[in-house]
């Protein structure tokens, strides 16, 4: 590498590092203030404390909201991954109308959340379906399905279909072929899809805002606290805990995906 070229790489790398700083600085304010000994989230900092973390652990309302979000996230991610599996299984095997089906399953990505939220609210109201966590889960299915299908499609496209032919030639039926050949091969994709869908559901505010009724999910609860900020430091403590947990989850998801053929983050597949 010539000296001039080396300089250029360093310039690009320096810019990339600055960019990362721009991405991380605001996010890292949350843990900073979660240890700050003041109810007001503003400078100057007034001392180190762990009390927001103990307050967070004792906060009953927040705990209920957290468990609601976990329930919704688990239900939505499992269901959308199962549905995503059927989409990936069928669409990677050539079927008339393939592009149409792929486009339809990606469509929710192109509808703003606010529109999806209010139109689901109208539907539930017209059908007299009471708002609850169940309606939130339904809404999250639309939200998560493009992500699940995207991740799984890229995983299914990455493996050699002749392995399935071999299994059939050796006498396995379609179901046994799926369980003994396809499933083990796409397992990392399934894990990545579960995690990605869970995170999308867990972080959603708008759909839940319109569809949760009185069953508050965590983002809806946080929204209330952001506007009436007397318990805000508890929320920051929780936010920092979630930041840590989701970072670990995402690193695991990427590591799982990486064990396969592709080396791009899950979100790249969309």
């Amino acid at each position: 590498m010539t000296r001039a070229r080396y300089g250029k790489v360093r310039g690009a790398a320096a810019y990339a590092i600055l960019y990362l700083l721009f991405l991380y600085a605001p996010v890292l304010l949350l843990p900073l203030f979660s240890f700050n000994d003041s109810v007001f989230v503003a400078f100057p900092l007034s001392g180190l404390t762990g009390r927001w973390y103990s307050a967070m652990a004792a906060d009953e309302e927040m705990r209920i909201a957290l468990f609601n979000s976990l329930k919704v996230g688990i239900a939505a991610s499992v269901a959308s991954t199962l549905l995503g599996l059927t989409i990936a299984q069928v669409l990677t095997r050539g079927i008339p109308g393939r592009r149409l089906f792929a486009g339809f399953s990606n469509l929710p990505l192109f509808i703003p959340d606010i529109v999806l939220g209010i139109s689901l609210l109208i539907l539930m109201t017209r059908l007299a379906i009471p708002l609850s966590l169940a309606t939130v889960i339904l809404g999250h299915l639309a939200l998560c399905l493009p992500f699940a299908a995207g991740v799984l499609l890229s995983r299914f496209e990455g493996f050699d279909l002749s392995l399935e032919d071999a299994s059939r030639d050796l006498g396995e039926n379609a179901w046994m072929t799926f369980f003994r050949v396809t499933l083990p091969l796409v397992l990392p994709g399934i894990a990545a899809s579960l995690i990605l869908s869970f995170v999308v559901s867990f972080d959603d505010f708008l759909i839940a805002f319109f569809l949760c009724g009185t069953d508050t999910t965590l983002p809806v609860y946080i929204w209330g606290e952001l506007r009436f900020p007397y318990k805000l430091p508890n929320v920051l403590a929780l936010g920092s805990t979630i930041l840590l947990a989701s970072t670990i989850l995402i690193v695991c998801a990427e590591w799982l995906r990486r064990r396969g053929t592709q080396s791009q983050p899950a979100a790249v597949a969309i």
Partner: peptide, 24 residues
């Protein structure tokens, strides 16, 4: 891989709290 991961990690933290951070 590491760079792509670094770009995506802040994206997976609560959107509400990230916006709130800008208010701060």
């Amino acid at each position: 891989f590491l760079w792509l991961l670094l770009v995506t990690i802040p994206f997976w933290t609560s959107y509400l709290l990230r916006v709130f951070a800008w208010k701060v």
